[in-house]
Simulated assay, not measured.
Amino acid sequence: MTRFGVVLISERSSKEEWLARCRRADALGYDVIAVPDHLNLLSPFPTALLAAEASERATIGTYVLNASFHRPALLAREVTTTVALIGERLELGLGTGYVESEFAAAGLPFDAPTRIDRLAGLVAELDRLLDHKGPPLLIGGHGDRVLGLAARRAEIVSFTGAPYRPEYGRTALVTAGALLRRVEHVRAAAGERAPRLELNVLSKATVLTGDRRAGVAGLRRYAPDLTVDELLEVPTLFVGTPAQIAEQVRQNEERFGFSYITVMDSAMEDFGKVIEHLR
């Protein structure tokens, strides 16, 4: 059965406001309520605990913790405490981080090899500190090393489909064909583990419209070098009527193996209409 997650983002919020947003995500049918890890946003673990308080049903995820921001022993304490308080509902998402200004603010180097080494080291140490009994691990990214690590060590591999592009100073989406090659890379790297992996994709935007070609025009900022036809094909954007997008989700699962879809909270309400067609 396909799972659906939403990343809730807030720079500031009262407890009541945060709980209301989490309850709304739960009511819309999301299976996973996830919290991000950026320096300008609310801290992930307190908000994760409140999300669990708001919903008795949903899994609570981190999408994703920046490995460079967390020391293994301290993160192991956070994980152990969270599991003790909310039970077996935590899904631990990790990544390398991608916002260069945040690394500068934290006094950390931004070069890719160092970030990936930190992620690999954190995964190994957490496994040891949690005695191989940690919550389900999600690792998200795009490059060979990160996805190879995910294939070998995680239960869930999350595809961002958006590498960092220096010419744009940010990430940008790749074509459907390029993302399919990323999936094939993971399956090859996973070997015997491949059939047991859950494949997740992070969607950047959902646009409800009766005119898909017109609807995708406002999404060009996510992939400046892709054509309209290429934008309509990528599994990281959802454009169309709820029924059309539901069919896109089904086709993406068949073509890419994506059985777990995560959307940003700006799309929470609109994609909730899609979930209705898939349940």
Rank of each mutant, 00 (worst) to 15 (best):
S158H: 06
A188P: 05
T81K: 11
A246S: 09
L28C: 04
G161L: 10
I9Y: 15
A51E: 12
N252F: 14
R181Y: 10
R279G: 05
Y98L: 11
A52H: 07
I60Q: 00
R23S: 12
V186H: 14
L137N: 04
V263L: 00
I261Q: 03
G240T: 10
F271C: 02
C22P: 09
R71K: 01
T47R: 15
S203E: 01
G240V: 12
V263R: 00
V157A: 03
G141D: 02
L49T: 07
D111E: 14
E276K: 04
D270C: 01
L199V: 06
A246C: 02
V274D: 01
A120W: 11
E233A: 15
G210Q: 11
C22T: 09
E184S: 14
P195D: 05
Y30H: 11
S101Y: 03
E167C: 02
V228M: 04
R21F: 06
E254I: 05
I261P: 04
V99N: 05
T82F: 07
R181G: 12
T175K: 08
K204Y: 08
L126F: 03
I9D: 14
G87V: 10
L90D: 13
C22E: 09
H132D: 04
D265I: 11
D26H: 13
G93Y: 09
G215I: 03
A20S: 12
L8E: 04
L50D: 09
V216K: 11
A73I: 04
T262E: 02
A189C: 13
D225S: 11
F238L: 08
D144P: 09
L74F: 07
A67W: 08
H277L: 00
E88G: 09
T175G: 09
T236V: 13
L208E: 05
V64Q: 10
Y260Q: 07
L41P: 07
D270K: 01
E233V: 06
N40H: 13
A217H: 03
T80A: 15
R193Y: 05
F271I: 10
A267N: 02
